[in-house]
Simulated scan of single mutants.
Amino acid sequence: MSKQEHFDAIWQRAAGRKGGDAALTALLPQADSGQARLSDAALLSAMSAQIFKSGFVWRVVENKWPAFEQAFWGFEPQKLLLMSPEQLDQRASDPALIRHGKKMQAIMDNALMVQELAEEHGSFGQWLQQWDSRNVIGLWAELKRRGSRLGGNTGPYFLRSVGIDTFLMTGDIIAYLKAHELLDASPNSKRGQMQAQAAFNCWQDESGLPLASLSRVVACSVGDNRLGVTD
């Protein structure tokens, strides 16, 4: 039998660990509908940056990203689809960039995905916005299926970075869900993600908070008690 806590109990425990309600509130992600303001090129840039950050030092990626913007023509999908293999090889050996051939190939693969979805839905941004946060795991799955290197938490982190509301399956979240018998399948499986979504939907019904805030509070209620914790 699952042991799903009421969200107010989770909040009180997290607030007690972080120094009170005000301190916990200050840790919550700021509500943002940034995806509504971003072009498809900007979305592809953000997606590509997140792919390069996966398994790498984020600050290095951020420092080098202006050079990526220049080398990849502002991440305009239509322009990128005209790039020759030779031009991509040149970028893969450019010391001003991060020389990772497979991740650079993912830029090209995802440019095609963005362009195809834009043709189907008016823009890639519109396609992202059509998803109900109560089934955000469906969006995770589509990004992984149609795109490149967007599995695990890379897709969700990208969505969070552009203002799409989502929870994250981080170590603290997984540990909480398992401890309370809300997750009995692999966190990367469809069944496991459905179980997580169901738990977060229940907490959203109770609290009215965005998934991103719920995710942060749950993470703050368990694990190492450190300031600036990220979920």
Results as ranks from 00 to 15, higher is better:
residue 99 R to M: 15
residue 64 K to P: 00
residue 119 E to P: 06
residue 24 L to I: 06
residue 29 P to W: 01
residue 102 K to P: 13
residue 221 S to V: 03
residue 176 Y to D: 01
residue 95 P to G: 12
residue 77 P to M: 02
residue 154 T to F: 03
residue 46 A to D: 03
residue 135 N to S: 12
residue 119 E to T: 10
residue 117 L to Y: 06
residue 211 L to I: 04
residue 3 K to T: 12
residue 187 P to Y: 07
residue 89 D to E: 13
residue 63 N to A: 09
residue 176 Y to G: 00
residue 11 W to M: 02
residue 89 D to A: 14
residue 40 D to K: 03
residue 46 A to R: 06
residue 31 A to R: 11
residue 93 S to D: 15
residue 98 I to N: 12
residue 135 N to Q: 14
residue 14 A to Q: 01
residue 186 S to L: 12
residue 182 L to N: 00
residue 141 A to I: 11
residue 56 F to K: 09
residue 83 M to E: 13
residue 94 D to T: 04
residue 86 E to H: 13
residue 96 A to Y: 05
residue 16 G to T: 04
residue 138 G to Y: 01
residue 72 F to L: 03
residue 60 V to D: 06
residue 102 K to Y: 06
residue 20 G to F: 05
residue 121 H to N: 14
residue 143 L to K: 02
residue 165 D to P: 11
residue 118 A to K: 08
residue 37 R to E: 15
residue 97 L to C: 10
residue 4 Q to M: 11
residue 118 A to C: 10
residue 8 D to V: 06
residue 95 P to V: 04
residue 21 D to K: 06
residue 71 A to Q: 10
residue 192 G to N: 11
residue 227 L to C: 08
residue 119 E to N: 12
residue 190 K to E: 15
residue 145 R to L: 13
residue 7 F to D: 01
residue 198 A to M: 08
residue 3 K to S: 15
residue 133 S to M: 09
residue 137 I to E: 14
residue 211 L to Y: 13
residue 208 G to I: 09
residue 188 N to L: 07
residue 26 A to N: 11
residue 47 M to G: 05
residue 58 W to Q: 09
residue 56 F to V: 10
residue 119 E to W: 07
residue 140 W to E: 08
residue 29 P to I: 04
residue 198 A to S: 15
residue 36 A to Y: 04
residue 42 A to Y: 00
residue 220 C to W: 02
residue 162 V to H: 03
residue 175 A to C: 07
residue 22 A to Y: 06
residue 176 Y to K: 01
residue 193 Q to I: 13
residue 28 L to M: 09
residue 128 L to M: 02
residue 77 P to S: 04
residue 227 L to F: 08
residue 149 R to M: 13
residue 223 G to I: 10
residue 123 S to W: 06
residue 12 Q to I: 05
residue 53 K to S: 14
residue 202 C to Y: 12
residue 51 I to S: 08
residue 33 S to H: 07
residue 51 I to V: 15
residue 55 G to D: 07
residue 153 N to E: 14
residue 187 P to V: 12
residue 170 T to S: 15
residue 23 A to K: 09
residue 217 V to N: 02
residue 71 A to I: 04
residue 72 F to A: 03
residue 199 A to L: 09
residue 61 V to W: 03
residue 15 A to R: 07
residue 137 I to Y: 08
